[in-house]
C-alpha cells in the first residue's frame, strides 16, 4: 500500500504481482482514479502529445518526450488532487473513448497503433462531437504541456529558468 502510494508500480514487491488492475483501482498509485493499464495508456498518450524528438545537434541524442519525464504521473496526480468530479469523470471515461476512436480510425487499439496513427487518433478526438472526447483530450493536453514545461529537464536544459536572477534590467535590446 505504502509502496503504491509513494513509489508507483515500478517498485511493487513480487508478492504484489497478483494484483489486478481492478484491485488497484481502490488503492492505486494516484488515489485509484485509473487502473494500471490505463496508466500505461496515459504514458503513451502524453508521449504522443509531446514525443521524444531528435536534438538539433544529432550528436546530442534526443530531446525527451513527456513519457520519459514522467508527465503521465503528473497528469494523474493533478486530476486526482486538483480537479472536480466532473473533470475526473471525463478523465476516467476518456481511455475507453481513446481506444474506441483508435479502433474506428485504424482498426487497432491505441497501444497497437503506430506513432503516426496515434497522432491521427488524437486529431480525430480533437474534432470529435461525441460528448467528453474533445474535453478529455483538452484536459490531458493542457496538463501534459504544464507538466512538461515545468519539468526539471525542460526548465534546466531548454528554457533555462533562473531561480536567482539577481537583477532586473528594464530596457535591453531584443536579441537577434
Amino acid at each position: 500500500m505504502v509502496a503504491t502510494a509513494v513509489g508507483g508500480l515500478a517498485v511493487l514487491p513480487s508478492w504484489a504481482t497478483r494484483w489486478t488492475p481492478e484491485s488497484l483501482r481502490a488503492t492505486g498509485p494516484m488515489g485509484g482514479l485509473i487502473s494500471s493499464a490505463e496508466t500505461n495508456l496515459l504514458a503513451e498518450l502524453v508521449e504522443t502529445i509531446i514525443p521524444a524528438t531528435p536534438a538539433t545537434d544529432p550528436s546530442k541524442g534526443e530531446i525527451p518526450g513527456a513519457k520519459a519525464l514522467n508527465v503521465h504521473q503528473f497528469v494523474q496526480k493533478m486530476v486526482a488532487d486538483c480537479y472536480d468530479k466532473a473533470a475526473q469523470d471525463t478523465f476516467r471515461k476518456g481511455f475507453t473513448a481513446l481506444d474506441e476512436v483508435a479502433k474506428a480510425t485504424g482498426g487497432k487499439s491505441f497501444l497497437e497503433t503506430d506513432a503516426a496513427g496515434r497522432l491521427n487518433v488524437l486529431k480525430q478526438m480533437q474534432q470529435s462531437t461525441v460528448p467528453g472526447q474533445k474535453e478529455f483530450l483538452s484536459l490531458v493536453k493542457n496538463l501534459t504541456i504544464r507538466g512538461y514545461m515545468n519539468s526539471e529537464y525542460v526548465m534546466t536544459n531548454l528554457t533555462h529558468y533562473e531561480m536567482v536572477p539577481g537583477r532586473y534590467k528594464g530596457c535591453v535590446p531584443v536579441a537577434g
Partner: peptide
C-alpha cells in the same frame, strides 16, 4: 503556439515568440 499536437506542439512550446 500551443495549437498543435506531437512534434508540431513541441516545436511550438520550445520556440516561444516574444
Amino acid at each position: 503556439d500551443q495549437s498543435g499536437l506531437g512534434a508540431d506542439l513541441k516545436q511550438g512550446l520550445l520556440n516561444p515568440k516574444l
